Simulated assay, not measured.
Amino acid sequence: MTYMIDAWLERPHPYLRILHRDTGEVCALLEEEALAELSEQGDLDLSSLSSTEPLVLKELVRNLFLFCYARALRPHGDLH
C-alpha cells in the first residue's frame, strides 16, 4: 500500500492528511490541535515533509499513523 501526504501547514487552520495513493481515500487526518501537539513533542519534522527519500517518507508516515492511533485510544478528557 502506498500513501501520499497532503499537508497545508501555512494557513490559519493547518492540517495534514495521509491519502491512499491509488484511491485518494483519507487514511489519517491531523488537524490544528494534533499538529500543535506533535510540534510541542518535537515529533513533527517539517524537513521530512519535503524529503524525496522513500525511507524518510515511509518512517514519517509510520510515525504519523502511530500518533493518530495512540491519540484515538486516549480517554476523551486526556489531551496529553
Rank of each mutant, 00 (worst) to 15 (best):
H76C: 08
L9G: 10
L30D: 04
I18F: 01
I18C: 02
L19E: 03
V26I: 08
T52H: 10
R74T: 03
H13I: 15
L49H: 03
D78R: 08
R71L: 14
H13P: 01
R62E: 09
P54T: 04
Y69P: 00
G77A: 07
R21S: 11
R74K: 06
V61H: 05
W8Y: 12
R17N: 14
H80L: 11
V61K: 05
A70N: 14
D22W: 07
L57Y: 03
A70C: 13
L9Y: 11
A70W: 12
L46W: 10
A7C: 09
F67Y: 15
C27M: 15
M4E: 10
L60S: 02
D22A: 14
L38G: 07
Y69F: 15
L44W: 03
Y15R: 10
D78A: 04
Y3N: 01
A7T: 09
A28M: 14
T2S: 12
R62H: 14
T23P: 06
I5W: 01
L29K: 07
C27D: 06
S39Q: 12
T23N: 08
L29P: 01
E40I: 11
T52V: 08
P12Y: 02
G24A: 02
L49N: 02
K58D: 10
V26R: 04
W8M: 13
E25G: 03
